[in-house]
């Protein structure tokens, strides 16, 4: 291959990635840089700072480290991500993917039921769950538990974090299942047969063959789901607005509340920048883990 041809090839490839670079620059990199800039000012939606925002250096960041609500929100987000995405969706998604590899009569129906929550717009989903979890005798869940003699509960007030975790698991199983299905189908049937000939029981097959060979898929899933769950806003905001008393104030909702309810754009931006850095760090961690194992 001549050097000239190679150079032309390089330029053509650059040209091909130009559209996505433009989109990324406009809608990701520019806003992110702007948020970094805003986080260094006292930009606000009302008052004198709204007219003349001032450069305040790292003031917003020092404030953030002593802000108990920020740390509480971060902790809520941590538990939310851990129980809904990393444990709930993953375990149930993998279980349903394995179940749906078998042939049984209701398979298409079960498949549709698992995938359906993904097809519902998140605000609609939140409305459905609001009705499901409504307190008093009209709540669907209260009607169901009444069959077992349980008193009506105020689900979203008594167990707010648990409830949003349940709702998010419900919504995310489908995606986890699709990814796990693709991971499982990449494992050759002959390996399972070889393991059967070697005398492995179903539990040993899962632990010694399926799980290790699913590691790249698991990491990919964890990368995508952790980062996207940290960023969840609409579903939970529409259901609880972060309440009661901040019990479900995920970091995304906290950023929104600080920026648009407390009008402190600069401070909200600082929180957003911290979360961005954090997400990037997690992403890098997973990507590195993926590279080692693939």
């Amino acid at each position: 291959m001549s050097a000239k041809f190679e150079r032309a090839e390089i330029w053509r490839n650059r040209f091909l990635i130009l559209p996505s670079m433009l989109l990324l620059a406009t809608f990701v990199i520019y806003p992110a840089c702007f948020a970094v800039y805003t986080s260094l000012t006292n930009e606000s939606l009302t008052g004198p700072a709204a007219l003349n925002p001032r450069f305040v250096g790292l003031d917003n960041y020092t404030k953030l480290f002593t802000d108990g609500n920020f740390w509480r929100s971060l902790a809520i987000t941590f538990w939310f991500v851990l129980f809904s995405a990393i444990i709930g969706q993953l375990v149930l998604g993998l279980a349903s993917a394995m179940l749906l590899r078998r042939r049984f009569a209701l398979r298409p129906l079960v498949n549709a039921v698992i995938l359906m929550p993904n097809a519902v717009p998140e605000v609609v989903a939140a409305m459905m769950w609001a009705s499901m979890l409504a307190s008093g005798e009209y709540g669907t869940l209260n009607n169901i538990v009444a069959w077992f003699g349980v008193e009506p509960q105020r689900w979203l007030t008594s167990f707010p974090l648990t409830m949003i975790i349940v709702v998010n698991i419900w919504r995310g199983i489908g995606f986890a299942m699709i990814l796990m299905t693709s991971g499982l189908s990449s494992i050759s049937e002959e390996l399972y047969e070889a393991a059967r000939m070697d005398g492995a029981n179903p539990r040993q097959v899962f632990r010694r063959i399926t799980l290790p060979l699913l590691v790249p898929t698991l990491f990919l899933y964890l990368l995508v789901s952790t980062v996207s769950t940290i960023a969840i806003f609409g579903l939970v905001f529409a259901l609880t607005r972060g309440g009661p008393a901040g019990a479900t104030e995920l970091i995304g909702i906290y950023i929104y509340n600080q920026s648009f309810n407390a009008y402190q754009l600069g401070y909200g931006s600082a929180v957003a920048v911290v979360v961005l850095t954090f997400s990037l760090f997690i992403g890098m961690l997973y990507v590195r883990a993926l590279k080692v194992d693939v």
């Binding site: 002959e190 047969e193 070889a194 059967r196 000939m197 070697d198």
Partner: peptide, 29 residues
């Protein structure tokens, strides 16, 4: 069941466990 028959099989694609070393593959059973 296959493992109780005392029969071993060599598959067309070999079906070696890709995540195990040669020693682990051979000693798996």
């Amino acid at each position: 069941s296959p493992d109780k028959r005392g029969i071993a099989m060599v598959f067309q694609s070999y079906a070696l466990y890709p995540h195990m070393t040669v020693a682990e593959n051979i000693g798996f059973s």
